[in-house]
Nucleic acid binder design. Structure first.
Lengths: 194, 194
DNA sequence: CTTGCAACATACCATGCGGTCGGTTATTAT
DNA sequence: ATAATAACCGACCGCATGGTATGTTGCAAG
Protein backbone atom coordinates (compact mmCIF):
# COMPACT_ATOMS: atom_id res chain seq x y z
CA UNK A 1 0.00 0.00 0.00
CA UNK A 2 1.49 3.34 -1.05
CA UNK A 3 1.48 6.40 1.17
CA UNK A 4 -1.55 8.00 -0.39
CA UNK A 5 -3.66 4.90 0.04
CA UNK A 6 -2.37 4.59 3.60
CA UNK A 7 -3.54 8.08 4.55
CA UNK A 8 -6.87 7.37 2.92
CA UNK A 9 -7.23 4.27 5.08
CA UNK A 10 -6.17 6.21 8.16
CA UNK A 11 -8.88 8.74 7.47
CA UNK A 12 -11.46 6.00 6.98
CA UNK A 13 -10.66 4.15 10.19
CA UNK A 14 -10.50 7.34 12.24
CA UNK A 15 -13.76 8.52 10.74
CA UNK A 16 -15.39 5.13 11.32
CA UNK A 17 -14.47 5.27 14.99
CA UNK A 18 -15.56 8.87 15.45
CA UNK A 19 -18.87 8.27 13.69
CA UNK A 20 -19.43 5.21 15.82
CA UNK A 21 -18.79 7.19 18.97
CA UNK A 22 -20.52 10.47 18.22
CA UNK A 23 -22.76 9.88 15.21
CA UNK A 24 -22.27 11.31 11.76
CA UNK A 25 -23.44 14.87 12.23
CA UNK A 26 -21.64 15.35 15.53
CA UNK A 27 -18.41 14.01 14.10
CA UNK A 28 -16.06 16.92 13.50
CA UNK A 29 -13.70 16.83 10.58
CA UNK A 30 -11.09 18.71 12.59
CA UNK A 31 -11.00 15.87 15.12
CA UNK A 32 -10.34 13.40 12.33
CA UNK A 33 -7.59 15.66 11.01
CA UNK A 34 -5.96 15.80 14.43
CA UNK A 35 -6.17 12.05 14.90
CA UNK A 36 -4.58 11.42 11.51
CA UNK A 37 -2.17 14.33 11.84
CA UNK A 38 -3.02 15.59 8.41
CA UNK A 39 -4.35 18.84 7.05
CA UNK A 40 -7.77 19.70 5.76
CA UNK A 41 -6.35 19.80 2.26
CA UNK A 42 -5.34 16.16 2.54
CA UNK A 43 -8.81 15.09 3.56
CA UNK A 44 -10.49 17.01 0.79
CA UNK A 45 -8.02 15.59 -1.66
CA UNK A 46 -9.30 12.07 -0.91
CA UNK A 47 -12.95 12.85 -0.27
CA UNK A 48 -15.06 15.49 -1.95
CA UNK A 49 -17.24 16.21 1.08
CA UNK A 50 -18.07 15.07 4.57
CA UNK A 51 -21.00 13.02 3.41
CA UNK A 52 -18.95 11.27 0.75
CA UNK A 53 -16.53 10.36 3.50
CA UNK A 54 -19.48 9.00 5.43
CA UNK A 55 -20.58 6.89 2.49
CA UNK A 56 -17.05 5.53 2.09
CA UNK A 57 -16.92 4.59 5.77
CA UNK A 58 -20.23 2.83 5.40
CA UNK A 59 -19.27 0.89 2.32
CA UNK A 60 -15.63 0.14 3.02
CA UNK A 61 -15.61 -0.29 6.79
CA UNK A 62 -19.00 -0.98 8.29
CA UNK A 63 -20.64 -3.10 5.60
CA UNK A 64 -17.88 -5.69 5.06
CA UNK A 65 -17.21 -5.98 8.79
CA UNK A 66 -20.89 -6.51 9.40
CA UNK A 67 -21.68 -8.98 6.64
CA UNK A 68 -18.56 -11.03 7.32
CA UNK A 69 -19.55 -11.40 10.93
CA UNK A 70 -23.01 -12.67 10.09
CA UNK A 71 -21.72 -14.80 7.26
CA UNK A 72 -19.32 -16.64 9.52
CA UNK A 73 -22.02 -17.09 12.14
CA UNK A 74 -24.34 -18.66 9.57
CA UNK A 75 -21.75 -20.78 7.77
CA UNK A 76 -22.05 -23.74 10.09
CA UNK A 77 -23.89 -26.99 10.00
CA UNK A 78 -26.80 -25.74 12.03
CA UNK A 79 -27.40 -22.01 11.43
CA UNK A 80 -29.93 -21.92 14.25
CA UNK A 81 -27.26 -22.87 16.73
CA UNK A 82 -24.82 -20.70 14.81
CA UNK A 83 -26.98 -17.65 15.44
CA UNK A 84 -27.45 -18.50 19.09
CA UNK A 85 -23.75 -18.90 19.75
CA UNK A 86 -23.13 -15.74 17.74
CA UNK A 87 -25.52 -13.74 19.85
CA UNK A 88 -24.35 -15.27 23.10
CA UNK A 89 -20.72 -14.58 22.29
CA UNK A 90 -21.71 -11.00 21.58
CA UNK A 91 -22.93 -10.62 25.14
CA UNK A 92 -19.62 -11.95 26.42
CA UNK A 93 -17.18 -10.22 24.14
CA UNK A 94 -19.08 -6.98 24.08
CA UNK A 95 -16.60 -4.25 24.77
CA UNK A 96 -17.48 -1.27 26.85
CA UNK A 97 -17.59 0.96 23.80
CA UNK A 98 -20.05 -1.35 22.12
CA UNK A 99 -22.33 -1.32 25.13
CA UNK A 100 -22.21 2.44 25.25
CA UNK A 101 -22.12 3.23 21.55
CA UNK A 102 -24.25 0.45 20.14
CA UNK A 103 -24.04 -1.00 16.67
CA UNK A 104 -22.57 1.47 14.15
CA UNK A 105 -25.03 0.52 11.46
CA UNK A 106 -28.02 0.69 13.74
CA UNK A 107 -26.86 4.10 14.94
CA UNK A 108 -26.41 5.37 11.42
CA UNK A 109 -29.82 4.08 10.49
CA UNK A 110 -31.42 5.90 13.38
CA UNK A 111 -29.59 9.12 12.70
CA UNK A 112 -29.44 9.41 8.94
CA UNK A 113 -32.08 7.19 7.32
CA UNK A 114 -34.74 9.87 7.37
CA UNK A 115 -32.38 12.74 6.67
CA UNK A 116 -30.15 11.67 3.82
CA UNK A 117 -31.33 9.53 0.95
CA UNK A 118 -27.83 8.30 0.15
CA UNK A 119 -27.43 6.81 3.59
CA UNK A 120 -30.95 5.45 3.60
CA UNK A 121 -30.52 3.54 0.36
CA UNK A 122 -27.19 2.13 1.47
CA UNK A 123 -28.65 1.00 4.77
CA UNK A 124 -31.65 -0.48 3.04
CA UNK A 125 -29.50 -2.40 0.61
CA UNK A 126 -27.41 -3.79 3.41
CA UNK A 127 -30.44 -4.87 5.38
CA UNK A 128 -31.74 -6.71 2.37
CA UNK A 129 -28.41 -8.42 1.88
CA UNK A 130 -28.36 -9.45 5.52
CA UNK A 131 -31.92 -10.68 5.33
CA UNK A 132 -31.11 -12.77 2.30
CA UNK A 133 -28.11 -14.21 4.11
CA UNK A 134 -30.25 -15.38 6.99
CA UNK A 135 -33.09 -16.65 4.82
CA UNK A 136 -30.67 -18.67 2.70
CA UNK A 137 -29.11 -20.22 5.76
CA UNK A 138 -32.46 -21.14 7.27
CA UNK A 139 -33.73 -22.60 4.02
CA UNK A 140 -30.89 -25.05 4.03
CA UNK A 141 -32.31 -26.67 7.13
CA UNK A 142 -35.91 -26.16 6.09
CA UNK A 143 -36.75 -29.79 6.77
CA UNK A 144 -35.87 -29.37 10.43
CA UNK A 145 -38.00 -26.23 10.82
CA UNK A 146 -41.64 -25.94 11.69
CA UNK A 147 -44.07 -25.78 8.82
CA UNK A 148 -45.64 -22.55 7.74
CA UNK A 149 -42.83 -20.27 8.79
CA UNK A 150 -42.41 -17.03 6.86
CA UNK A 151 -38.64 -17.11 6.73
CA UNK A 152 -38.13 -13.55 5.52
CA UNK A 153 -40.43 -12.32 8.24
CA UNK A 154 -38.59 -14.42 10.78
CA UNK A 155 -35.30 -13.03 9.62
CA UNK A 156 -36.41 -9.42 9.90
CA UNK A 157 -37.82 -10.21 13.31
CA UNK A 158 -34.46 -11.51 14.49
CA UNK A 159 -32.55 -8.51 13.19
CA UNK A 160 -35.07 -6.05 14.59
CA UNK A 161 -34.90 -7.64 18.00
CA UNK A 162 -31.14 -7.62 18.00
CA UNK A 163 -31.09 -3.95 17.11
CA UNK A 164 -33.64 -3.21 19.79
CA UNK A 165 -31.51 -5.08 22.29
CA UNK A 166 -28.42 -2.99 21.58
CA UNK A 167 -30.46 0.19 21.90
CA UNK A 168 -31.76 -1.03 25.22
CA UNK A 169 -28.28 -1.74 26.52
CA UNK A 170 -27.21 1.74 25.51
CA UNK A 171 -29.63 3.42 27.86
CA UNK A 172 -29.21 0.95 30.67
CA UNK A 173 -25.46 1.04 30.13
CA UNK A 174 -24.99 -2.50 31.23
CA UNK A 175 -25.00 -5.83 29.53
CA UNK A 176 -27.69 -7.39 31.64
CA UNK A 177 -30.72 -6.19 29.73
CA UNK A 178 -29.00 -7.05 26.49
CA UNK A 179 -28.29 -10.54 27.72
CA UNK A 180 -31.88 -11.01 28.79
CA UNK A 181 -33.27 -10.03 25.42
CA UNK A 182 -30.69 -12.22 23.70
CA UNK A 183 -31.60 -15.14 25.92
CA UNK A 184 -35.24 -14.74 25.00
CA UNK A 185 -34.29 -14.36 21.35
CA UNK A 186 -32.38 -17.64 21.45
CA UNK A 187 -35.42 -19.33 22.95
CA UNK A 188 -37.46 -17.98 20.04
CA UNK A 189 -34.92 -19.06 17.43
CA UNK A 190 -34.56 -22.58 18.78
CA UNK A 191 -38.34 -22.86 18.86
CA UNK A 192 -38.28 -22.45 15.09
CA UNK A 193 -37.22 -26.06 14.90
CA UNK A 194 -39.66 -28.90 14.98
CA UNK B 1 -54.30 28.69 31.37
CA UNK B 2 -52.79 32.16 31.42
CA UNK B 3 -50.76 33.60 28.59
CA UNK B 4 -47.38 32.74 30.05
CA UNK B 5 -48.30 29.13 30.55
CA UNK B 6 -49.74 29.07 27.06
CA UNK B 7 -46.48 30.21 25.46
CA UNK B 8 -44.61 27.67 27.54
CA UNK B 9 -46.87 24.95 26.21
CA UNK B 10 -46.44 26.26 22.67
CA UNK B 11 -42.70 26.03 23.05
CA UNK B 12 -42.95 22.51 24.43
CA UNK B 13 -45.15 21.19 21.65
CA UNK B 14 -43.13 22.86 18.92
CA UNK B 15 -39.91 21.56 20.45
CA UNK B 16 -41.38 18.07 20.82
CA UNK B 17 -42.25 18.01 17.15
CA UNK B 18 -38.92 19.39 16.00
CA UNK B 19 -36.97 16.97 18.19
CA UNK B 20 -39.08 14.13 16.87
CA UNK B 21 -38.34 15.13 13.30
CA UNK B 22 -34.69 16.12 13.47
CA UNK B 23 -33.33 14.80 16.74
CA UNK B 24 -32.28 16.85 19.73
CA UNK B 25 -28.91 18.16 18.59
CA UNK B 26 -30.09 19.03 15.10
CA UNK B 27 -33.08 20.88 16.45
CA UNK B 28 -32.47 24.60 16.13
CA UNK B 29 -33.80 26.96 18.72
CA UNK B 30 -34.36 29.60 16.07
CA UNK B 31 -36.77 27.28 14.25
CA UNK B 32 -38.74 26.83 17.44
CA UNK B 33 -38.80 30.60 17.91
CA UNK B 34 -40.13 31.09 14.39
CA UNK B 35 -42.81 28.45 14.82
CA UNK B 36 -43.98 29.99 18.06
CA UNK B 37 -43.47 33.54 16.83
CA UNK B 38 -41.65 34.50 19.96
CA UNK B 39 -38.24 35.90 20.71
CA UNK B 40 -35.21 34.23 22.13
CA UNK B 41 -35.74 36.12 25.33
CA UNK B 42 -39.12 34.50 25.76
CA UNK B 43 -37.68 31.02 25.38
CA UNK B 44 -34.85 31.65 27.82
CA UNK B 45 -37.32 33.11 30.23
CA UNK B 46 -39.11 29.79 30.44
CA UNK B 47 -36.15 27.43 30.04
CA UNK B 48 -32.62 27.94 31.29
CA UNK B 49 -30.94 26.11 28.42
CA UNK B 50 -31.59 23.97 25.38
CA UNK B 51 -31.01 20.77 27.27
CA UNK B 52 -33.41 21.77 30.03
CA UNK B 53 -36.00 22.34 27.33
CA UNK B 54 -35.22 18.86 26.07
CA UNK B 55 -35.73 17.38 29.52
CA UNK B 56 -39.05 19.20 29.84
CA UNK B 57 -40.20 17.87 26.48
CA UNK B 58 -39.26 14.37 27.58
CA UNK B 59 -41.02 14.57 30.91
CA UNK B 60 -44.07 16.62 30.03
CA UNK B 61 -44.79 15.49 26.47
CA UNK B 62 -43.17 12.21 25.52
CA UNK B 63 -43.38 10.26 28.76
CA UNK B 64 -47.08 10.78 29.59
CA UNK B 65 -48.11 10.25 25.96
CA UNK B 66 -46.11 7.06 25.86
CA UNK B 67 -47.12 5.53 29.17
CA UNK B 68 -50.78 6.37 28.66
CA UNK B 69 -50.74 4.58 25.33
CA UNK B 70 -49.28 1.41 26.79
CA UNK B 71 -51.44 1.63 29.86
CA UNK B 72 -54.62 1.72 27.84
CA UNK B 73 -53.39 -1.15 25.69
CA UNK B 74 -52.75 -3.28 28.75
CA UNK B 75 -55.85 -2.33 30.71
CA UNK B 76 -58.05 -4.96 29.15
CA UNK B 77 -59.23 -8.37 30.14
CA UNK B 78 -56.54 -10.16 28.21
CA UNK B 79 -53.33 -8.10 28.02
CA UNK B 80 -51.86 -10.54 25.51
CA UNK B 81 -54.58 -9.73 23.04
CA UNK B 82 -54.43 -6.12 24.19
CA UNK B 83 -50.82 -5.90 23.11
CA UNK B 84 -51.49 -7.60 19.80
CA UNK B 85 -54.33 -5.29 18.87
CA UNK B 86 -52.24 -2.35 20.08
CA UNK B 87 -49.38 -3.30 17.80
CA UNK B 88 -51.61 -4.14 14.90
CA UNK B 89 -53.46 -0.86 15.15
CA UNK B 90 -50.06 0.86 15.13
CA UNK B 91 -49.35 -0.60 11.73
CA UNK B 92 -52.65 0.70 10.44
CA UNK B 93 -52.79 4.11 12.03
CA UNK B 94 -49.11 4.79 11.55
CA UNK B 95 -48.83 8.22 10.02
CA UNK B 96 -46.23 9.02 7.44
CA UNK B 97 -44.21 11.03 9.91
CA UNK B 98 -44.12 8.10 12.29
CA UNK B 99 -42.86 5.79 9.58
CA UNK B 100 -40.18 8.26 8.62
CA UNK B 101 -39.28 9.63 12.03
CA UNK B 102 -39.78 6.61 14.23
CA UNK B 103 -40.64 6.61 17.90
CA UNK B 104 -39.56 9.83 19.64
CA UNK B 105 -38.35 8.02 22.71
CA UNK B 106 -36.46 5.43 20.77
CA UNK B 107 -34.83 8.19 18.75
CA UNK B 108 -33.80 10.10 21.83
CA UNK B 109 -32.41 6.96 23.36
CA UNK B 110 -30.31 6.31 20.29
CA UNK B 111 -29.08 9.86 20.06
CA UNK B 112 -28.60 11.00 23.60
CA UNK B 113 -28.29 8.02 25.95
CA UNK B 114 -24.53 7.76 25.55
CA UNK B 115 -23.94 11.49 25.35
CA UNK B 116 -25.93 13.09 28.14
CA UNK B 117 -26.44 11.50 31.52
CA UNK B 118 -29.60 13.48 32.20
CA UNK B 119 -31.31 12.06 29.17
CA UNK B 120 -29.97 8.58 29.83
CA UNK B 121 -31.34 8.41 33.35
CA UNK B 122 -34.72 9.73 32.26
CA UNK B 123 -34.91 7.20 29.45
CA UNK B 124 -33.81 4.41 31.75
CA UNK B 125 -36.41 5.31 34.34
CA UNK B 126 -39.13 5.35 31.71
CA UNK B 127 -38.09 1.98 30.37
CA UNK B 128 -38.26 0.51 33.82
CA UNK B 129 -41.71 1.98 34.33
CA UNK B 130 -42.87 0.55 31.03
CA UNK B 131 -41.37 -2.82 31.84
CA UNK B 132 -43.16 -2.87 35.17
CA UNK B 133 -46.40 -1.99 33.43
CA UNK B 134 -46.11 -4.97 31.12
CA UNK B 135 -44.93 -7.38 33.78
CA UNK B 136 -47.82 -6.43 36.06
CA UNK B 137 -50.30 -6.96 33.28
CA UNK B 138 -48.88 -10.34 32.35
CA UNK B 139 -48.77 -11.48 35.95
CA UNK B 140 -52.49 -10.99 36.21
CA UNK B 141 -53.04 -13.76 33.71
CA UNK B 142 -50.15 -15.82 34.97
CA UNK B 143 -52.31 -18.93 35.20
CA UNK B 144 -52.95 -18.83 31.48
CA UNK B 145 -49.28 -18.48 30.62
CA UNK B 146 -46.70 -21.16 30.06
CA UNK B 147 -44.65 -22.22 33.03
CA UNK B 148 -41.09 -21.06 33.51
CA UNK B 149 -41.45 -17.75 31.72
CA UNK B 150 -39.16 -14.95 32.85
CA UNK B 151 -41.73 -12.20 32.59
CA UNK B 152 -39.35 -9.28 32.94
CA UNK B 153 -37.17 -10.79 30.24
CA UNK B 154 -40.20 -11.34 28.06
CA UNK B 155 -41.27 -7.76 28.55
CA UNK B 156 -37.90 -6.33 27.59
CA UNK B 157 -37.89 -8.63 24.60
CA UNK B 158 -41.21 -7.26 23.40
CA UNK B 159 -40.16 -3.65 23.80
CA UNK B 160 -36.80 -4.25 22.15
CA UNK B 161 -38.43 -5.91 19.17
CA UNK B 162 -40.93 -3.12 18.79
CA UNK B 163 -38.16 -0.54 18.82
CA UNK B 164 -36.18 -2.53 16.33
CA UNK B 165 -39.23 -2.72 14.10
CA UNK B 166 -39.69 1.04 14.01
CA UNK B 167 -36.02 1.50 13.20
CA UNK B 168 -36.38 -0.98 10.39
CA UNK B 169 -39.36 0.83 8.94
CA UNK B 170 -37.40 4.07 9.05
CA UNK B 171 -34.78 2.86 6.65
CA UNK B 172 -37.15 0.95 4.41
CA UNK B 173 -39.55 3.87 4.53
CA UNK B 174 -42.58 1.70 4.22
CA UNK B 175 -44.88 -0.06 6.61
CA UNK B 176 -44.44 -3.51 5.17
CA UNK B 177 -41.33 -4.52 7.06
CA UNK B 178 -42.79 -3.09 10.22
CA UNK B 179 -45.96 -5.07 9.74
CA UNK B 180 -44.00 -8.25 9.17
CA UNK B 181 -42.02 -7.88 12.36
CA UNK B 182 -45.19 -7.00 14.26
CA UNK B 183 -46.95 -10.04 12.85
CA UNK B 184 -44.11 -12.25 14.02
CA UNK B 185 -44.11 -10.48 17.37
CA UNK B 186 -47.81 -11.21 17.81
CA UNK B 187 -47.14 -14.87 17.06
CA UNK B 188 -44.51 -14.85 19.77
CA UNK B 189 -46.74 -13.09 22.28
CA UNK B 190 -49.69 -15.37 21.73
CA UNK B 191 -47.39 -18.36 22.10
CA UNK B 192 -46.74 -17.22 25.65
CA UNK B 193 -50.10 -18.70 26.55
CA UNK B 194 -50.54 -22.33 27.38
C1' DC C 1 -50.31 56.64 41.28
C1' DT C 2 -46.20 54.23 41.60
C1' DT C 3 -43.43 50.53 42.39
C1' DG C 4 -41.91 45.96 41.15
C1' DC C 5 -41.61 41.99 38.84
C1' DA C 6 -43.04 38.73 35.34
C1' DA C 7 -43.00 38.28 30.47
C1' DC C 8 -41.20 39.21 26.83
C1' DA C 9 -38.06 41.68 22.76
C1' DT C 10 -33.64 42.81 20.37
C1' DA C 11 -29.04 43.20 19.48
C1' DC C 12 -24.97 41.07 20.08
C1' DC C 13 -21.16 37.57 21.04
C1' DA C 14 -17.86 33.69 20.80
C1' DT C 15 -17.41 29.37 18.85
C1' DG C 16 -17.19 25.67 15.81
C1' DC C 17 -18.61 24.02 11.66
C1' DG C 18 -17.99 22.39 6.52
C1' DG C 19 -15.86 24.00 2.70
C1' DT C 20 -12.57 26.75 -0.53
C1' DC C 21 -8.43 28.25 -2.53
C1' DG C 22 -3.80 29.57 -3.61
C1' DG C 23 0.40 27.70 -2.68
C1' DT C 24 4.04 23.94 -1.79
C1' DT C 25 6.29 19.48 -1.87
C1' DA C 26 6.95 14.88 -3.63
C1' DT C 27 6.55 11.58 -7.22
C1' DT C 28 6.33 9.93 -11.75
C1' DA C 29 6.37 9.94 -16.79
C1' DT C 30 8.62 11.56 -20.82
C1' DA D 1 16.38 17.32 -16.73
C1' DT D 2 11.97 18.88 -16.98
C1' DA D 3 7.22 19.00 -17.14
C1' DA D 4 3.07 17.49 -15.09
C1' DT D 5 0.38 15.85 -11.75
C1' DA D 6 -0.66 13.75 -7.37
C1' DA D 7 -0.49 14.64 -2.51
C1' DC D 8 -0.75 17.70 0.89
C1' DC D 9 -0.63 22.27 3.60
C1' DG D 10 -2.87 26.04 6.13
C1' DA D 11 -5.06 30.36 6.11
C1' DC D 12 -9.39 32.00 5.30
C1' DC D 13 -14.63 32.39 4.56
C1' DG D 14 -19.61 32.42 5.41
C1' DC D 15 -22.77 30.71 8.30
C1' DA D 16 -25.59 28.90 11.97
C1' DT D 17 -25.45 27.77 16.51
C1' DG D 18 -26.44 28.26 21.77
C1' DG D 19 -26.20 31.70 24.95
C1' DT D 20 -26.08 36.57 27.17
C1' DA D 21 -27.01 41.35 28.34
C1' DT D 22 -29.71 45.10 28.14
C1' DG D 23 -33.96 47.17 27.22
C1' DT D 24 -39.10 47.39 27.07
C1' DT D 25 -43.97 46.36 28.08
C1' DG D 26 -47.85 45.24 30.87
C1' DC D 27 -50.19 43.75 34.79
C1' DA D 28 -50.93 43.55 39.73
C1' DA D 29 -50.14 44.58 44.43
C1' DG D 30 -49.71 48.20 47.85
Amino acid sequence: MNDAEQTRQNILTAAADEIHQHGFKATSLSVILNRCEISKGALYHHFTSKIELGYAVFEEIYTPMFLDLWQSALSVEDPVEGLCTFFTSMTEQMSCSEVVCGCPLNNLCEEMANVDEGFRLRILSMQEQLNQLIVDALEQINDDLRDGLALSQVSYFIVATLNGATTLSKSSRNKELFQQVIAELCLYIRALKK
